[in-house]
Design a protein around this nucleic acid. Structure first.
Length: 653
RNA sequence: GCCCACGUAGCUCAGUCGGUAGAGCACGUCCUUGGUAAGGACGAGGUCACGCGUUCGAUCCGCGUCGUGGGCUCCA
């Protein structure tokens, strides 16, 4: 049979030889780096026998598939260690994750940190044993018998769920045997460095009615150095945690006395937020939006009409009684914007109408899911609703996409992932509507030349949507922006406009949020920048400090001048050494430190130091103003054209 | 909501095998006037999350409540 190595030689290899044989026969040396192979498109074990012509691509740790095999084998090694140390623990499932793995065990008690250490040690020992990993296939019945005999009841349950007649694969290494689809690395020695990270409870099959299992998380890399780099990254993530940085920089707080998920914005946090909001409002006005405000409560009847009471109740705070009728704290802004639309008879000539609001909403989130600023109960959406004619939809979506990329780039994000979510099983609206809306969304994405993925059935019940995820400085992705078409509300609220034909027609409604929620977005920004905000967002842009008391008056007057010039300035006149003041300003992540001693007073200058430690040198006050002005400018200048076109940022992928 | 862990000064944490507590930083006063990441002295600061129980006595033990953290989606 003819075997071809991808991007390499090809040749004849005897029938029934394994992938490993074939690789070797064609001159690929089988080091520990080759973990598995893709054969004619399928990822398989190196020990798999070949029948017929094939194209083979050896897989190493540098490919996503190679990594997955690697981590999957790693979790088996950990499971073997657990079984050796805790024989009564039962195996359940143990998949690879993006940068690690976990395994869930049924065990009578949680694993302690001491257990974890022992398991890790034992797992390392198993690597050293370099046990061969073997694949075997059994019939469904044989597999059930086999795992029953071993007391692995969860495995039995899994196999019982498999289709009749299916062959079941089983992998073994030494005495350890696990039900597994595979593939795996050839031997336990192929895993280089392994580290267990944490334990947690997890429900069998993710359902809280099921028994609680003991999950162990870990990760593995070919070398200790790579593992160390990864662990250092985890440390960095911890160091940048917005909850810690938010406290250290005195930006926000959350108090028991106020309630979980309810955020207080301290002056510095509020200043950052104010900059974001000012920018947001200004840009929305430029982009043809009209800004509106709406109250925090409304009669429950409004939320009945909108369908929230039927479809969203579990996320809403309980209604309150006022003068005998029920009022509801708002979980969304849309019904109010709809009411503004309805306050007039609208003509097709009025459309599109774009109503934007930084609208604060309240949603009941289960206590267990609350998380700092990222998941809260009261938050402000950068919300807008666009009411348009059906044939304006594509253009409107296209403009929103453009606008989104511009906003996100301004805040320092350069990598985006775009998802198009289509009709879910439970949904309202006609097929034609869905089809038309979905294709408009898709056309708008394509027009922007953006790569995207389709999330089949991931749309809201009321319409398809586009979600945009950003990647932060540490490579994590976050969903912020969403653009959703809504068929439901125009129907429920009987929205219409008078068409050219003089007859009423239903407008299309588009919900959109670019930053998502301000709380969440600021949380993400804090972590993205590690608290060191760019000058245009920094709550304090420069701190002016004197070296001795002799410069007090000079520093005060210079500070006043800088404030008059429009900058956010703090003055540090404390009786402390300059080194100490610099240290404090560094810790507060102030972008510029302006120091005045006798020399500077003499020359009417300031010694300018950047947050990163570089010395800019002595500048006059007007030079400082010029410098700060340049530094405090937003990174992109943009004006939304009045009609059509639009500035696009095609490098988003 | 569920499981596990945690809750001690403004912050970070130590401590008490049950006899009402301690450090560093921050804060205040004083000394020091020092040139780019920590000058010194003294001082003030705590209902040990809250409630109930056990006990002669609870910050410590038990139960409950509240809150925080990790997790509960990524298919053998």
């Amino acid at each position: 049979m003819k075997i071809t190595i991808k991007d390499g030689p090809s040749g004849e290899v005897g029938e029934g030889h394994t992938v490993a044989d074939a690789l070797q026969a064609l001159g690929v040396s089988l080091g520990l780096d080759i973990l598995a192979a893709r054969v004619n498109g399928t990822v398989v074990d190196l020990s798999m026998p070949l029948h017929g012509d094939a194209v083979i691509e050896p897989l190493r740790f540098d490919s996503p598939e190679g990594r997955e095999v690697y981590r999957h084998s790693s979790t088996h090694i950990m499971a073997q260690a657990v079984k050796e140390l805790f024989p009564t623990a039962q195996l359940t499932i143990g998949p690879a994750l993006e940068d690690g793995f976990y395994y869930d065990f049924a065990y009578e008690r949680p694993f302690t940190p001491e257990d974890l250490e022992k398991i890790e040690q034992r797992a390392r020992e198993i690597l050293k044993r370099n046990l061969t990993i073997r694949r075997r296939e059994l019939s469904k019945q044989e597999a059930i018998e086999f795992f029953k005999a071993r007391g692995e009841h969860y495995k039995v349950e899994l196999i019982e769920g498999f289709p009749e007649g299916e062959r079941v694969s089983v992998y073994s290494q030494g005495d350890f045997v696990d039900l597994c689809r595979g593939p795996h690395v050839p031997s336990t020695g192929h895993v280089g460095a392994l580290k267990l990270l944490s334990t947690a409870g997890a429900y069998w099959r993710g359902d809280e009615r099921n028994p609680l299992l003991q999950r162990i998380y870990g990760t593995s890399f070919p070398t200790q150095a790579e593992l160390d780099t990864h662990l250092a990254r985890l440390e960095e993530i911890k160091r940048r945690d917005h909850r810690k940085v938010g406290k250290d920089l005195d930006l926000i707080s959350i108090h028991d006395e106020i309630g979980p998920g309810l955020v207080l914005w301290h002056p510095k946090g509020a200043m950052i937020r104010l900059q974001i909001e000012n920018f947001w409002r200004e840009q929305h006005l430029n982009a043809g939006y009209e800004l509106v405000y709406s109250p925090h409560v409304a009669r429950l009847d409004l939320w009945k009409t909108s369908g929230h009471v039927d479809f969203y109740r579990e996320n809403m705070f309980a209604p309150m009684k006022v003068e005998g009728s029920d009022y509801q704290l708002k979980p969304m802004n849309c019904p109010y914007h709809i009411m503004i639309y309805k306050s007039h008879l609208r003509s097709y000539r009025d459309l599109p109408l774009r109503y934007g609001e930084l609208g604060t909403v309240y949603r009941y989130e289960r206590t267990g899911v609350l998380h700092g600023l990222l998941r809260v109960r009261g938050f402000t959406q950068d919300d807008a609703h666009i009411f348009c004619l059906p044939d304006q939809m594509e253009e409107e979506v296209s403009r929103v996409l453009d606008f989104t990329f511009y906003m996100l780039r301004t805040f320092g994000f350069t990598e985006f992932e775009v998802f198009l979510s289509t009709r879910p099983k439970e949904s309202v609206g006609s097929d034609e509507h869905w089809e038309q809306a979905t294709s408009s969304l898709e056309a708008a994405i394509k027009k922007r030349g953006v790569t995207y993925r389709v999330d089949q059935g991931g749309g809201a019940f009321y319409g398809p949507k586009i979600d945009i995820k950003i990647r932060d400085a540490l490579g994590r992705s976050w969903q912020c922006s969403t653009i959703q078409v809504d068929f439901n509300n125009p129907q429920r609220f009987q929205l219409h406009y008078v068409g050219e034909d003089g007859k009423p027609h239903q407008p299309i409604m588009i919900h959109r949020a670019l930053l998502g929620s301000i709380e969440r977005f600021v949380g993400i920004l804090i972590e993205h920048y590690g608290g060191a905000f760019p000058t245009w967002l920094a709550p304090v842009q420069a701190r002016v400090m004197n070296i001795t008391d002799r410069q007090r008056d000079y520093v005060s007057s210079v500070s006043a001048d800088l404030k008059t010039a429009g900058f956010r300035i703090e003055t540090d006149l404390r009786n402390e050494k300059i080194g100490f003041k610099i240290r404090e300003a560094e810790k507060a992540k102030v972008p510029f430190m302006l120091v005045a001693g006798d020399r500077e007073v003499q020359g009417k200058t300031l010694s300018v130091r950047r947050r990163n430690g570089t010395n800019v040198g002595d500048l006059t006050v007007s030079e400082v103003i010029t410098l700060l002005r340049a530094e405090a400018a937003q990174p992109y200048q943009y004006s939304q054209p009045s009609q059509g076109g639009g500035l696009s940022f095609p490098s988003c992928a």
